[in-house]
Amino acid sequence: MTETFKKIPIFRPEVTDTGLPQELRISISELLKQGCFIRGRAVLDFENQLAQYLSTNNVIAVGNGTDALLAALMALELNKGDEVITPAFGYPAAAEMICLLGLTPVLVDVDWNTFNFDPVQLEEAISPKTKVILPLHLFGLPARMDDIMQIADKYQLTVIEDAAQSLGSDCVVDGKKRKSGTVASLGCTSFFPSKNLGAWGDGGAIFVNRDDPKLWNRLRSIVNHGQEKKYFHTMLGMNSRLDTVQAEVLCYYLSRFGDNCRRRVRIASRYTESFSQLESLELPLCAEVNSYVPNLYTVKVAKDRRDALQSFLNKKGIASQVYYPLPIHRQKAYAPFVRTPVKLTNSEQLPFCVLSLPCFPSMKEWEQEAVISAVKQFFRESHV
């Protein structure tokens, strides 16, 4: 098998290519000597470093991105039956947490071009029970936070940003750039290995984006079993914390984050340049959005050809992925709980035509060229 036809994954952690970096070898060895695996110094260091990078008030590291969403919703002291508006297309972690708390997910459609909230539909979906707007910044492209915040202010609603796929991207609000996840009162992210800033296991964080000690203290208590101080539990909480080892890993990769973001942008730009003449392929907006760090390079293909393209790539040893094959309101687990006050046309159609191609910082030049060559070959031969 030639190098070109080796398996090209949808994602590959950098460490699998480079081995354990010397800097991490030293810091993790020291950690092993100390034995401080829970709430070690590196966790606080990472929280502070990430807050500084984001130019936000506080960061609270937790066990994973889903816990971050759950804790953020719990901190708002909502009542059962209160409504949270979120997109119908995307990973359902937010909808899942909304349902677990006895709240009602209100689903609105996404824009065909950006995969994100349609602000027009957002306003139409608001009811007297609406308390929260929860946008997802899908595939790395931030939602239209300027419009979303204006609507939230108009109706006095809280906004929680799900920035699990968009860390490093910028939003422009009131003419100023803000990091994705830091525009609203609260932001959440994931450090799942394939995210823009990935750990070697699970991890997540909550961003408190305003000077609100009460909210910050409440979140700190919630993620620590509802303890105000050790063994004194003042509220219902949960147990969610970032392991010290993962904090060491994240501190290291945060120091290299800018370079890795630029690699993602370069790979996406190369795809866009190479595929620009393929009329059968609808490309993402990578080249049109400033400071957009793609987590996934997601194209749209006519639904009668999408599966054939994926199968063709697979035979070439190239992985691709359909994110996401079923909208949230069609999922058996959530369908009984959701409210769908508006038409979800795009959310219904996108699962049949989206396809994500490999796009990750450790991707080699020959790997990308193999993907580009295979995609072009498919469309060339399918026209014969």
Rank of each mutant, 00 (worst) to 15 (best):
F5G: 05
P13Q: 07
P13H: 05
D17K: 13
P21N: 12
L24R: 05
R25K: 07
I28R: 02
L31Q: 08
L31G: 06
R41F: 01
A42W: 01
E47Y: 00
E47H: 00
N48C: 03
A51M: 04
V59W: 00
V59Q: 02
A61R: 03
D67C: 08
A68N: 10
L73N: 04
N79G: 08
G81W: 09
E83V: 07
V84F: 01
I85M: 03
G102P: 01
T104Y: 14
D111K: 14
F115P: 03
F115N: 02
D118G: 11
L122H: 00
E123F: 12
A125N: 03
S127I: 09
P128M: 00
K129Y: 05
L136S: 12
H137L: 05
L138M: 13
L138F: 00
F139P: 02
M145Y: 11
M145R: 12
D147F: 05
D147S: 15
I148R: 11
A152G: 01
L157A: 10
V159G: 08
I160V: 09
A164H: 00
D170C: 12
C171Q: 09
V172I: 15
V172E: 15
D174S: 11
K176F: 10
R178M: 14
R178E: 07
S180F: 07
S180H: 10
G181P: 13
G181A: 15
V183F: 07
V183M: 08
F191K: 01
N196W: 00
L197Q: 08
G203T: 00
A205D: 02
N209S: 08
I222N: 08
T234P: 10
M235P: 08
M235T: 05
R241T: 10
L242T: 01
V249I: 14
S255F: 09
R256K: 14
V265A: 13
S269H: 15
S269M: 12
T272N: 15
L278N: 03
S280Q: 13
S280I: 00
E282H: 11
E282Y: 10
P284I: 00
E288D: 14
V289F: 08
S291E: 13
V293T: 11
N295R: 07
L296R: 15
Y297G: 03
T298F: 01
K303Q: 10
R305W: 13
R305F: 10
R306V: 03
D307G: 09
D307A: 01
A308T: 04
A308W: 15
F312Q: 04
L313I: 04
S320C: 03
H329G: 05
Q331C: 10
Q331V: 12
A335L: 09
A335W: 03
P336S: 13
F337W: 11
V342Y: 14
K343N: 13
E348M: 13
L350C: 02
F352L: 13
S356G: 02
P358K: 07
P361C: 12
E369P: 02
E369K: 13
I372V: 04
A374Q: 02
V375I: 03
K376P: 00
K376W: 07
Q377E: 09
F378H: 06
R380P: 02
S382C: 05
